[in-house]
Structure formats: C-alpha cells, structure tokens
Design a protein around this nucleic acid. Structure first.
Lengths: 160, 160
DNA sequence: TGATAATTGTAATACTATAACATATCAACC
DNA sequence: GGTTGATATGTTATAGTATTACAATTATCA
C-alpha cells in the first residue's frame, strides 16, 4: 500500500466512490448515513486536504445544514469512529480516508510547506515501536503516526 | 532503548538529574536557562506525567512566577524546541523528556485508562513508514508517534 | 401506533493557543 | 561602566478548538 495524496487524480471520482463505499458500509451495518454526515464526508473528499472543524462548519452554514459547532463535531465523530475520515492531531484537522473500506492503521505524511497530507499505512506493532510496546507490556489499541516534512513538489519549488 | 514511564523510580533523582542535564546543555549552547524555564521543567519532571499548559500555568501562578498564558507557552516552547520536553499532540499536553541529552526520535505509549505516558524510541525512517515516505518522495523532518492502549497495570486492574 | 433509541438544534461555556506591544533584563562591545 | 542590540518577561486582548447540557425532532421496530 502506497501513500495517497501528493499526486493529482480525478477528484469527482473519489468523491463519488468514497461516499458510495461509506453508504454501502452504513447500510450493511445498520448505521444512519444522514444528509449531514454524507455532506461532511463529501466536503472532505472534495477538498481533499485537512480541514478544521470550523472550516467544515462554515460550509454547512452556507448550505443551511447546521450552524453550531456540535453539528460539525458530531458528523466528524461519526465519520472518524467508522473510519471514513481521520483526525490529524498535529493539525487539529480532519481528512477523508484515502483507503475507504479497507482495514488499516493510517499514518500521515504532512507537508509543512504546502500543507498537503498523504495517507500511508504503518503497522504500529512492527519495528522499534512494536518492540518497545511489547517490552513495556503495553497493549496497543490505536496509533497516531504523523510525519512532517516536505512533499516532493515543495522540495523543488517551495510554496512559501 | 526501552520505554520509560510505567515503572516506579526515584522521582527526586530524575528531577535533579534532568534539570542538571538541561542546565549543562544550555550553558554549553549559550542558552538562557532562566528561573521560569527551570521551574517549568522541574514541574514536568516532578509530576512525571503529561500536563496541560494551563495546569502548569496554575502552578506558576501559585508560585508568583507568571499569571498569563504566554508565560507557560513560552517556557514550553523553549523546552520543547531544545528537546527538554515534548508535546503529546493527542492530549494537547506536555511531558518532560525521559531521555534528556540523548539525540532521539521520541514515541509515546499513552494509557487510555490511567493517563500515564511512557516515552520510547522509534525511528520514523524504518519499516512501513520509512518505505512509504521514500516511495512518495517525501523528506521526513519530524514525526509524531503516539500509541494509545493499556499500560501493564491497567490491563490487570483498570483505574476507572 | 406507541415506545424507544438515535439524531439534530441551540445556547452556553470550557479549553487551548497566539498576537501585539510595553517593559525589563542580559550580553557584548566600546 | 555605560551604550546598544538582542533576548526574555509582563500583560491585555483575542483567536481557535472542542464539549456540556438540554430541548426538539426523526428513525426504528415491536
């Protein structure tokens, strides 16, 4: 599995397929894929970058889909808890999942110059980290793995 | 290098040696290890857990060392930028460095039950993550690696 | 249809962090 | 020792992120 996020691609297609996968999963699991939740996922897929909860809230407000912070946070909680989106802790921001429907332990590559975020995969139980956890007798449930640096494009021509 | 944080040990000793290492390093580098900065590091070493900036600010206030948020944030910026403390992004909190004076890429094991945090080491350039970064042409400068789960103690007798 | 659970609307507030600018202190040089 | 420029501190105000609490509505299913 390779990182997704720095190369160009067909946005419309990933918005469509992303929401379709989420809708399908919700139908199977008896989850309500409501208009608000769907719209927030669409916004994340359309923007294809990490957005703050208040950026999303602004969009919802414009569209008359909700005006108060809990509206955005609830939808984001739903999406993140079911793996349709992820929170980037380093940025206090959210991004649509790039591997929708696949079980995965996400890791993120964050460009400090242009802000682009790519989603990769990294098993937290492998390598140094897994060894340290086992040595400490720590049972791993979830991992936040976020790497900062420069994306290929910004190494050549800095955005700022 | 093994994780430090879940086992008991001599606090007074680590407060003393931690500040000594920081003081020595600052002297060598021509950095000002001021009373405020020293005190914040001492507080972090004494508590030996992740503290929010405002927890620290409360302590400083009690001691008459500063009453406004920038006081705490500035000291924490100094300490984190020189490796004497680390920010735990997942918790929006700060913890004293457990490997003071050693060059290292820290990783953290966070117990979701009791809140204890252990510091481990994990080279972000190894394993899946390093491979994904290289494949994407991404140059890594810094990594946030924070694992959540249960510490050995809370696996046996949950704190909550 | 009625009971129950899940979702949404809304106001208020808590928590986290920074900008901006004035004052004070330090370090280095004359 | 005093001047100067850089660094650090004091303080006010504000920006940005997130949650609590409770009322109203909508969905689900017996």
């Amino acid at each position: 599995m390779t990182a997704i996020g720095f190369e160009h691609h067909d946005h419309a297609a990933c918005v469509h397929s992303g929401t379709a996968v989420a809708a399908e999963y919700c139908a199977q699991q008896g989850l309500q894929f409501t208009a608000q939740r769907r719209r927030v996922l669409e916004i994340l897929l359309e923007e294809h970058r990490a957005l703050g909860a208040y950026d999303i809230l602004d969009r919802l407000r414009e569209e008359g889909l909700g005006a108060q912070p809990p509206v955005a946070y609830r939808a984001l909680d739903f999406l993140t808890s079911h793996g349709f989106a992820h929170k980037i802790e380093r940025l206090n921001a959210f991004i649509a999942c790039a591997h929708m429907g696949q079980r995965h332990a996400p890791a993120f590559l964050i460009c400090r110059d242009c802000g682009a975020v790519a989603e990769a995969y990294a098993d937290p139980l492998q390598g140094d980290l897994g060894r340290a956890a086992r040595d400490a007798g720590f049972s791993v449930e979830r991992a936040v793995i976020e790497v900062e640096g420069l994306c290929p494009h910004c190494q050549e021509s800095p955005a700022k």
